[in-house]
Design a protein around this nucleic acid. Sequence first.
DNA 1: ACCTGAACACCGTTCAAGT
DNA 2: ACCTGAACACCGTTCAAGT
Lengths: 205, 205
Amino acid sequence: MIQQPASKPYHHGDLESALLVAALDLIAKGGLDALSLRAAARLVGVSHAAVYRHFPKKEHLVARIAQEGFIRLAAAMEMAAAQVAPDAVARMVATGLAYVDFAQAHPHHLRLMFGAPLGRPGDFPDMERAGQAARAVLDTRVDELREAGVFATQDPEVVAMAAWGQAHGLAMLLISGQLRSGANLRDLAEKALTLAWLRDPLVPR
Amino acid sequence: MIQQPASKPYHHGDLESALLVAALDLIAKGGLDALSLRAAARLVGVSHAAVYRHFPKKEHLVARIAQEGFIRLAAAMEMAAAQVAPDAVARMVATGLAYVDFAQAHPHHLRLMFGAPLGRPGDFPDMERAGQAARAVLDTRVDELREAGVFATQDPEVVAMAAWGQAHGLAMLLISGQLRSGANLRDLAEKALTLAWLRDPLVPR
DNA sequence: ACCTGAACACCGTTCAAGT
DNA sequence: ACCTGAACACCGTTCAAGT
């Protein structure tokens, strides 16, 4: 058990982590508009100026939130694939469905992760690495498909692009408000993912 | 020729359209963060309070901008398909590519269109209609594929979902900053779109 | 090294008042 | 009917000053 200090100390201890947690809470409850440095500072119980010791600009906190999102998205995709039989198509569909489920569970977080590019390339290397790690999960699925003979004659980079585009597009659409909400969207997304990777034998080509 | 009034009148005349144009300009030049009612009013040359005669909340201006975006996206997709041979797959690929081109030309506008849902369903019917019209263009492509025997045995709703997801995902990814910018992304997107609709004969299913 | 309070230039939104 | 100016409660950011 970690001992809580009896009296509030002048220094917070782990202000950076506390601000991240507060920011995730603000986004989850109020969307991206509710994210402000001042509100996060208020939640943590520190003056708004203290934030600038850890995040020199709001952009830096946003990058940290995005990084955390990519870490969680990658973990969710890996866990989903691990719980599925070794069939390559089933694993790809499960991974894409995990992407869709992440979107429905954390719509604002996902939108933040894929919003306008932050800074210039290289400005937030930790975030970029986390993003690449998430992409790598899908790349592994593409490799597995290839070994199973699916799209084996195609450029792997193109297949990876199609895979990421498919999963990302379905995920973003489901949280966009552009779909009539009557249908079972998760089920529809799963069928669309299956369609994308299950080849149709009736095509005249 | 439309005559400009010699002296600035007290009433603007077409303030709503002028604010829309100003807002599109703000977004194109400075991204979504640069969009504010006050800046738009400033561009048009009117007090910031005047905006509220036409848009009771910022949300209403955003909805108008999104509506305009869907109208332009639908037009771009229709134009692209019209310039392509009657082959159903080629028309679908051209339509998806028009989606991708729209994203690269107007990244902030597209992000606004697919951001957090605005209000409750029914709050902005004009925007919803414009969104449905854009989707209808892709639905027409799915119908054409069906007539050509492509995915003819599948649920059209599922095929449409896969089509929209594919085009939307590629478009959003290209403007997300998550892709290494070294590659020719438009070319990669075109190949991914082709892959999605050109059935691979080597699949063991 | 880390935090605070006050300050500045921005927002969205409201409202009494003007034309 | 439409627009203005002042006001309010918020922002992000800076900075001298405190511990």
